[in-house]
Amino acid sequence: MTLTSATLIQTGDPGQYQRVFRAEWVFAHNSEALKKCVTDMQESKQDQRCTVSVPAPAHKAPAGFVMPPVSRCL
């Protein structure tokens, strides 16, 4: 996402921006597990369950990241 598109999304729909930002944060911390899960799905042609880790607040979140309430993210 470019800075311009991120700024447009943040300005137009701050809640959606936070959901996208949060999804990227979760993906960044779980990219290898998710890649393996997708590969397993492609090979088996079956649904796969994947385990991801969501870092505790002690881990540094990206600059500008504000964790929205879970109910707004689902």
Rank of each mutant, 00 (worst) to 15 (best):
T2V: 09
L34C: 05
V38C: 06
P55F: 05
K60E: 15
W25S: 01
V70Q: 06
C73Y: 01
K60H: 13
K36D: 08
E32K: 10
R72C: 01
P69S: 05
A23I: 07
R22G: 01
L74Q: 06
P14S: 11
P69R: 05
S44I: 06
L74H: 02
K45N: 00
D47R: 02
H59D: 14
C37I: 04
V54F: 12
A56K: 00
R22F: 07
H59N: 10
Q48W: 03
Q18L: 15
L3W: 12
A23D: 14
H29S: 06
C73L: 11
A33K: 08
S53D: 03
I9V: 15
S44N: 12
P57H: 01
L74A: 11
L34F: 01
P68K: 05
F27M: 11
P14M: 09
P57D: 03
C37Y: 02
K60Y: 07
S31C: 02
F27T: 09
T39S: 11
L74K: 04
V54R: 03
A33N: 09
F27R: 05
R72Y: 02
V52I: 15
V26Q: 00
D47S: 12
Q16S: 04
E24A: 15
A63S: 13
G15V: 02
K36H: 06
A28P: 05
P57M: 00
A63Q: 12
Q48K: 12
A63P: 08
Q42P: 01
W25L: 00
V52D: 10
V54I: 15
T7Y: 11
Y17V: 04
P69F: 00
Y17F: 15
P68M: 05
M1A: 13
L3T: 15
P62R: 12
L8C: 14
V54C: 03
S31F: 10
E32S: 13
P69G: 07
M67H: 09
R72L: 06
C50P: 04
V54T: 06
D40G: 05
K45P: 00
D47Y: 04
Q48E: 10
A28N: 15
T51G: 00
C50H: 06
A6G: 13
A61I: 08
S31H: 07
V70R: 01
M1R: 08
M1N: 07
A33T: 04
S31Y: 10
I9G: 03
H29D: 02
A61K: 15
M1P: 04
K60N: 13
T39N: 09
G15F: 02
Q42T: 13
T2Y: 09
S44R: 10
N30F: 00
E43C: 03
A61F: 14
Q18V: 05
V38D: 01
H59C: 12
C50Q: 08
W25E: 09
R19F: 01
T4H: 12
A28K: 10
S44T: 15
T51D: 07
A28I: 05
T39H: 03
F21L: 12
T7P: 07
